[in-house]
Write a protein that binds this DNA or RNA. Structure first.
Lengths: 207, 207
DNA sequence: TGTGGTTGGATAGTCATAATATCCAGTATT
DNA sequence: AATACTGGATATTATGACTATCCAACCACA
């Protein structure tokens, strides 16, 4: 199909499609002459993926390019690839520091196995420091509660990853980490309503 | 203290402090003449709060202003205020649509009490639609699993809200929603590592 | 074979956000 | 009185994500 059909099917403006092409988020079509190229079904779905990553997961265009590169051709095993993908997810941290005291303590309190160089450790450090700086430090009690349930959620995630095909597993893991996160955030906000109204009575509300 | 001391204590550049003052994120100091004003301890902590909201929770400066306004003087009850705050949290949706089929179905599957006009409903709709559009729709099984544990997390959140003082409760709820979210996201990313290494063996990794 | 609408490719322009920088006249401090 | 600092106003920059224009080469149809 021509580029105009891609535009029509995806709803993304032509100028923007060209921009993604230029930035290398979208692979070029198969050239059929100096002024024409053919695109396929995969270009349409790639466009949907780009919009999901940028609009919903909140990635910048350049980070989206990184994630798409990992999904297209994972450079290594699941562990390494997922680590790189997590580093491309917001919040972006320019982390030269090698010490993450709050995160270390928290993860050790939970008794989890972890790799101190994993980007999520720095992300946790920053988030804990932010909460602390506004006078809402995380208590051990709360941490343990969160940890238990977050771990249960992670177990659900992992059981869904297709086994066998390594590439499919990596794609699923990378996209699942990025795209289910906003779902969890929205569910938590909604759960605050349900809990407060069904356990404390009154109309929906509260936290 | 003078403005220069605020700058020194907070680490935020002078030009930026003036910018926040101009934008109304930071209240003006107590004027003590045409070219001087005194600032207090609360200005320093307000600055920390601004940075936490913008850098960690990912709010724009204008949404931060909205949230700070709610925290300063909640216009109404906890329910209404929290609803407005949730609407100021990313992802920002310009929602005119009144129909959220995926979100409705999901919340009804969970059996939760909810208000269809709550911003988180639209946020959930978008997130579910995004996952679906890339070929990773949320299964009922996964939804029920997520729901159970997210609800448990929400119950922890609510037991921490100070009761009695309504204003303190609102502040805690608004900030807790925004600032604990990145903590949960980071913990989930880390839990993927722990689960895959401790239950599947091998070194940390996988999802 | 003409001819009007597309196309790819290149380049330039726009818009919003979030700072940063500069200027200035008027103090505060010494 | 001299110097440094202040508030307030205004101007400038940097970045990101598009959006718009141009143009020569086509291609498809009449």
């Amino acid at each position: 199909m021509r580029i105009s059909e891609i535009v029509e099917r995806s709803g993304v403006p032509l100028a923007t499609v060209k921009y993604y092409l230029r930035e290398g988020l979208l692979p070029p079509g198969e050239s059929t002459g100096a002024t024409s190229a053919r695109y396929g079904e995969d270009h349409v779905s790639r466009l949907a993926l780009i919009r999901a990553l940028t609009d919903v997961a909140g990635l910048s265009v350049s980070k989206t390019k990184v994630v798409l590169g990992l999904v297209d051709s994972p450079p290594a095993d699941l562990y390494t690839t997922l680590g790189q993908a997590v580093g491309a997810l917001p919040p972006y941290i320019d982390d030269d520091v090698e010490d993450h005291p709050r995160a270390r303590t928290a993860i050790e309190t939970l008794g989890w196995i972890y790799d101190p160089s994993y980007p999520a450790v720095a992300q946790l450090e920053r988030a804990l420091a932010a909460a602390e700086s506004v006078g809402m430090p995380m208590s051990d009690q709360r941490l343990l509660g969160y940890g238990e349930h977050v771990r249960a959620i992670a177990r659900i995630d992992i059981t869904q990853v297709p086994s066998g095909d390594a590439k499919a597993a990596i794609q699923y893991a990378v996209l699942g980490t990025a795209l289910y996160e906003p779902i969890l955030a929205a569910l938590r906000r909604l759960a605050h309503q349900d809990v407060s109204s069904s356990e404390l009575g009154g109309r929906p509300g509260g936290m």
